[in-house]
C-alpha cells in the first residue's frame, strides 16, 4: 500500500505544481458531493462563462448569450453512476447532461470524468476520450474534474506505456488525452495566463480503492 501512497503523494505534488487542485476522497459518493459543492460556490451571483464579461465582437457576444443556466456534464459515468449524480444535481437545481454537448459550446460549468490512469512524475491524467461527448466536456468546461482511483497511478510514462498503447491501438479509431493542469498560454510577453481555450481549473479527485 505504501507504494500506492508514494505515487499518490508524487502525483499530488507534480499536479499541484502545474496548477491543478488535488483532493483525496473516500469514494464516488464523496466525489459527486465535492463536484456539486464546487458548482454551488462557482460564480454564486452570475452564470457568465469566462471571458463573456469582456468587451467582445457581436458574434462572440451572441455565443455567450446562449448559456442561460448552470450545467455540469458527466459523459463517461456508468448508467447507475449517472443516475445517482443527476439526482444530486436536480436537488441543487443544476442541469446535468451526458450528451448534446455541441449545444453548449459557449461553455459549461463543470465536466466530470473518470480518468483511466495517471502518470505521477508529470502529474498527468490519462483519459480515453474517444467519445465525442466526453472530449467536449473536458474542453468546454470551465472546471474539469478527473476521478482517479489511487491504484491507477503509474510512476512514469514508460510504466504506463503498455496500457496507453492498449488505449490508442485497438484497431478502431481512438482519441486519447494526456491532461496536465489547466489550459495555459504565455504567448503575450511570456506572462502565464490560465484558461485560454480549455478549462480554467483542473481538479483531480483521488479516490481510495
Amino acid at each position: 500500500m505504501s507504494a500506492t501512497n508514494d505515487l499518490a503523494r508524487l502525483m499530488r505534488e507534480k499536479a499541484e505544481a502545474v496548477g491543478a487542485t488535488v483532493v483525496e476522497l473516500k469514494n464516488l459518493k464523496e466525489a459527486f458531493a465535492y463536484a456539486l459543492d464546487v458548482c454551488d460556490k462557482k460564480e454564486a451571483c452570475q452564470l457568465l462563462v469566462s471571458g463573456c464579461e469582456e468587451k467582445l465582437s457581436d458574434k462572440a457576444e451572441a455565443l455567450c448569450e446562449t448559456k442561460q443556466e448552470k450545467v455540469v456534464a458527466a459523459p463517461n459515468l456508468s448508467d447507475d453512476e449517472y443516475a445517482a449524480f443527476s439526482a444530486l444535481c436536480a436537488e441543487r437545481g443544476v442541469k446535468c447532461i451526458r450528451e448534446g454537448l455541441r449545444g453548449h459550446l459557449a461553455g459549461i460549468d463543470i465536466g466530470v470524468a473518470h480518468a483511466d490512469m495517471a502518470i505521477a512524475e508529470t502529474g498527468t491524467c490519462v483519459i480515453d476520450s474517444t467519445s465525442e461527448e466526453l472530449r467536449l466536456s473536458s474542453m468546454i468546461s470551465e472546471i474539469h474534474m478527473a476521478i482517479l482511483p489511487k491504484s491507477r497511478i503509474k510512476a512514469t510514462a514508460f510504466d504506463a506505456e503498455r496500457e496507453v498503447n492498449a488505449l490508442i491501438n485497438t484497431g478502431t479509431p481512438r482519441y486519447t488525452a494526456f491532461i496536465t493542469g489547466p489550459s495555459r498560454t504565455a504567448d503575450i510577453e511570456r506572462v502565464l495566463a490560465i484558461g485560454v481555450h480549455g478549462p480554467l481549473e483542473l481538479h483531480i479527485l483521488m479516490l481510495e480503492d
Binding site: 502545474v18 512524475e121 508529470t122 488505449l167 491501438n169 486519447t176 496536465t180 489547466p182 495555459r184
Partner: peptide, 15 residues
C-alpha cells in the same frame, strides 16, 4: 515544462 497541459493521441477517423 515537464510536460505540456495537453498531449493528444489521435488514431483514425473518430466520432
Amino acid at each position: 515544462q515537464a510536460i505540456t497541459s495537453y498531449v493528444t493521441w489521435i488514431t483514425g477517423a473518430n466520432e
